[in-house]
Amino acid sequence: MFGRIQLSEKITMNVLLLLVAIVWLVPLVYLLGYSLEGDHWGNYQAVLSLKLFPHFLINSFIVSVSVVILLLTVVALAAFGFSKATFPGASSIFAICLIGLMIPPVAMLVPLFQTVKSFHWMNTYMSLIGPEVAMSIPFSLLLARNAFDEIPNELLEAAEMDGANAWGKFVRIILPLAVPVLTTIGILAFLNSWNQYLFPLVFINKETMLTVTMAPKFFINEYTSDYHKVFAALVLITIPIVILYLFGQKYMQRGLTSGAIK
């Protein structure tokens, strides 16, 4: 059992948390301040007046939402199988799936490029959706499987006695109880997809198919660069994900701690 936290310990923890918050806030304050230098709010107006900027937003939204839907579908079904179904080699297959946690996306760039090219996905949404889903599966599957392990098997047995098949147990029992962890996985997938810079840079060369993370490069030329507008673009890119995190924070905290207690 944990004892009562002393006042000195509370003060120490708050001071440490304040220092960590300052470390994270200083770059954000600098980003916002630098984006207002020069033309001030004109920097933001210049970004918003880009002819292709609406296309960037729409492309990012389509890609991010598609990644979330596809990832949640695959991960929820796979986690249900690994957690509640028994079949030969389940542990070995699950361990193989987790190998992806040790491989950085940059190391997979060449084989991903060859795969995307062989499927004729270059300059399409699938060139951004497919690799993003594939690289997100290992960590998402780990979170979901641990959360599904917490759901008592007695609930599934009771549902089976009521005549529910495997699909019925998954839809009526597992999914309602797994909302926190699935919401966490969805939020993380949306954030990662929205902030993705490497895949659009490599797989997309048609301007109308670029995502919002490519907007800053339109203010960087060969000999001159307007970094005030670049920073303004970065601020605008950040706003949607900050709003999403604020609304989904409580679900993320619950989802990330799922499976911590057995």
Rank of each mutant, 00 (worst) to 15 (best):
V75R: 14
I5T: 11
K250R: 14
V26W: 00
M1A: 05
V29R: 01
Q114E: 08
K84E: 09
Y44T: 04
S193N: 04
I58M: 15
N165I: 06
P105Q: 10
S193V: 05
Q114K: 07
V15F: 15
M13P: 03
V74Q: 03
L36Q: 04
Q114Y: 10
K51H: 07
K217W: 04
L112C: 08
L7M: 13
G89R: 14
K169L: 12
W194C: 08
L48H: 07
N153M: 08
F94P: 03
L16V: 05
Q196D: 15
I103P: 09
L182R: 08
N43S: 10
V230P: 00
R172A: 12
P111M: 14
T213R: 13
L143W: 10
D39A: 12
T208Q: 14
L70M: 11
S64C: 10
G89Y: 06
V67M: 09
K250L: 12
L246S: 04
L7H: 12
M126Y: 12
V67N: 01
T115P: 01
T257D: 04
A158V: 07
F2R: 09
G42T: 03
F56A: 12
A260L: 10
L16N: 02
V15S: 11
S193C: 09
K84S: 09
S136G: 01
Y34F: 13
P88T: 03
A158L: 09
V65Q: 02
L256G: 09
I129Y: 14
R172P: 04
A164K: 12
S64A: 15
F2T: 07
I173E: 10
C97G: 06
A166W: 15
M102S: 09
I204G: 00
M135R: 07
L25C: 05
L112R: 05
T238N: 05
R172I: 12
A79W: 14
L32Y: 03
M209T: 03
I187A: 08
D226N: 12
I103V: 12
C97E: 06
I93D: 01
H228C: 05
L50W: 03
N59R: 12
L177Y: 11
G130R: 09
N123L: 02
Y197I: 11
G3Y: 15
P180L: 00
S136P: 01
W167P: 00
P54K: 06
W41I: 06
F139E: 04
Q253W: 07
P216Q: 04
P111I: 10
P88E: 00
R145D: 10
P88H: 06
S49D: 10
I243N: 02
K206R: 09
S60N: 11
M252R: 00
L101T: 00
I11L: 15
M161K: 04
S8K: 14
F218H: 02
V15Q: 11
L71R: 06
L71Y: 08
A85K: 10
I69D: 11
Q6V: 07
Y227H: 08
F94Y: 15
A189E: 04
R254Q: 11
M161D: 05
T124G: 03
T211L: 14
A85W: 14
P104V: 13
V63E: 15
L77G: 05
Q249D: 03
